[in-house]
Structures are given as structure tokens and as C-alpha cells.
């Protein structure tokens, strides 16, 4: 076997399974779902081509579509900055020469190991209106607690609060970024009389800006796809159909799931999936475009 032919042979031996997996389990389902998004397909009967009707129904008639877009948008706009700030703040603290620094890093990372489902269930009990831990504590202080999980005003803020416990991953990435900032820059700035804020503002932030961009992009994509947290929260609240009350926790991913596997509107759900895909592409592209103004790659 010639070297060239041997290379081709080994290429297919090693890359072939992965490529076959990609084609069979990713590319083919994606193309199928694109086709299905133009069909009425209820699973038990063959798909029927209906043109853009699924998209028209979603944009013009479906009462749950815009509600879920709103819930997901609010969540993304509020949760992503909060989680980034919380993760960065903790990373800054844990980057300092603290006693037992490794221990504290592990402690703050631990919640990220737990599944969001567990958080949703535990916090669901804590925030329960009648007899929940929080309202019992508030009652001791003479304060009448709210119906945290069963009020459309509070349910989403509660979910955002619950989700913030997953800051461990961005925190670890920030820590890695912070450790790559040259110490000499801090020492030079210090000698020039720069205070802590000035050092943070003019040294730390610019030098970790690529890391911030990475965390923002990943967090935004994650926020747009939220499903498990909302589903588990609804189940823990004994909601007959997760997403309540009054669609206040009906995230886009949850709505998509219910359309697909609750009601078997596979065509409609496929259209929703492609709209989400388009939204993620646009938002990510916008993030990269805007990042030119504030991300520094040290060149």
C-alpha cells in the first residue's frame, strides 16, 4: 500500500465512524426536520406538505409561541448578565491567595455538578407559597410571603434565581483566564499608583475579554435552549402541563417539547426548532460583531 493510499485508508478507519454518526444522527435529522417544518405531521400518519402554514400559525395565531419567546428573552436578558457577573466576581475572589483556596473553588463549583432538575425540585419546596421554607421564615419576621412559584409575577424570577446556582462552569473558565493575565502588568500599574478598580478596569477586563465573550456566547445559547429546569420546575409544582402559571415559565424549549412530544405536532415543532436555530445564529453573530468593540486579543 502506498503512503497516500495508507493515509486515505486510516483516515476512513478513524474519521469514518464519526462522520457516519454525524450524517445519520445529526445531518439527516436536521434536514428531515427542515422538510417536516413545511408539513403537517402527527406521527401516526405520513407527513403532508402544507407550505409555510406552520410558520404562519406560529407567528400569527399560536397564543403560546410569542409567550414562550417573551419568557425566553426575559430570562436571557436577565440571567446571562447576572450569571456572568456572579461567576466573574467569584472567580476574582477565588483567584486571590486565600487560605484553602482549592477547597473553596471546589465548594463553589459543586452546585454545577448537580442536575438542574434537582435544583428545580428543591427550590420548588423552598419557595412554596403555603408552608414553604422561605415563607415560613418570612412569617417569623411578620412578613406575608408571596406565592413565589404559583404567581406569574414571581415564577420566572424564582427560576432565574435557581438557575444562577449553575455559575460554576463560567467561574472555572474565568479563573483560567485570570491566571493567564501577566502579574507584571499589575505590579507596574501598582507602582504607577493605579488602585484596585483601575487595575481591574484597565488590565483585568481587557485581558480576559476573550474569555468573557466565550462565556457570554455560551451562556446566551444555553439560555435560549433552557428546557430541563423549566420542565422539572413545572413537574415539582404539580402543574398539569409544565409552563404555568399562565405561561409565565413556558420557555421556548419547553413549548417546543410539548408541541413535539406532548401533542405530536412534529411539523410545528420542527418549524419552532428552525426558528430557534435562526435566532441563535443571529444572536451569536451579533455577539461576535459587537465584540469587535470590546474584546482585545492582545495584538
Amino acid at each position: 500500500m502506498t503512503t497516500r493510499r495508507a493515509q486515505i485508508f486510516w483516515f476512513w478507519i478513524f474519521a469514518g465512524p464519526a462522520m457516519a454518526g454525524f450524517v445519520v444522527f445529526s445531518l439527516w435529522p436536521m434536514l428531515s426536520s427542515l422538510w417536516l417544518s413545511f408539513c403537517q405531521y402527527e406521527v401516526v400518519s405520513p407527513p403532508r406538505f402544507i407550505g409555510f402554514q406552520n410558520y404562519i400559525y406560529l407567528f400569527a395565531h399560536d397564543p403560546s409561541f410569542w409567550a414562550s419567546v417573551k419568557v425566553t428573552s426575559v430570562y436571557t436578558v436577565v440571567q446571562v448578565p447576572l450569571s456572568i457577573v456572579a461567576a466573574l466576581a467569584l472567580a476574582l475572589v477565588l483567584d486571590r491567595p486565600l487560605r484553602g483556596r482549592g477547597f473553596w473553588r471546589a465548594v463553589f463549583f459543586l452546585p454545577s455538578i448537580l442536575p438542574q432538575v434537582a435544583f428545580a425540585v428543591v427550590f420548588g419546596y423552598i419557595f412554596q407559597a403555603d408552608g414553604g421554607l422561605l415563607n415560613r421564615l418570612l412569617a417569623l419576621a411578620g412578613i406575608q410571603g408571596a406565592a413565589w412559584t404559583t404567581s406569574p409575577t414571581w415564577a420566572l424570577p424564582v427560576l432565574i434565581q435557581v438557575s444562577l446556582w449553575g455559575f460554576g462552569y463560567p467561574m472555572v473558565i474565568f479563573l483560567a483566564g485570570l491566571q493567564n493575565v501577566p502579574r507584571e502588568l499589575y505590579e507596574a500599574a501598582h507602582m504607577d499608583g493605579a488602585g484596585a478598580w483601575a487595575r481591574f478596569r484597565h488590565i483585568t477586563l481587557p485581558l480576559i475579554s476573550p474569555v468573557i465573550l466565550f462565556n457570554v456566547v455560551m451562556s446566551v445559547i444555553g439560555a435560549l435552549k433552557v428546557f430541563d429546569l423549566a420542565y422539572a420546575f413545572g413537574v415539582a409544582q404539580l402543574q398539569w402541563m409544565p409552563g404555568g402559571p399562565a405561561r409565565s415559565t413556558l420557555f421556548y424549549g419547553l413549548n417546543l417539547y410539548q408541541q413535539a412530544f406532548g401533542f405530536f405536532h412534529m411539523g410545528l415543532a420542527s418549524a419552532m426548532a428552525w426558528i430557534l436555530f435562526g435566532a441563535i445564529v443571529v444572536v451569536t453573530a451579533a455577539n461576535f460583531r459587537l465584540s469587535r468593540r470590546w474584546v482585545h486579543y492582545g495584538d
Binding site: P63, P152, A246, R247
Partner: peptide
């Protein structure tokens, strides 16, 4: 569950 109940929820909440 998807269309009627959310409106009933809103009614119950005084909205």
C-alpha cells in the same frame, strides 16, 4: 391545557 387554561390562570390571578 395550552389555550384555555392559561386564560383561566390569568382570571384566577385577577388579571
Amino acid at each position: 391545557s395550552q389555550i384555555v387554561q392559561p386564560e383561566i390562570d390569568r382570571m384566577v390571578l385577577g388579571e
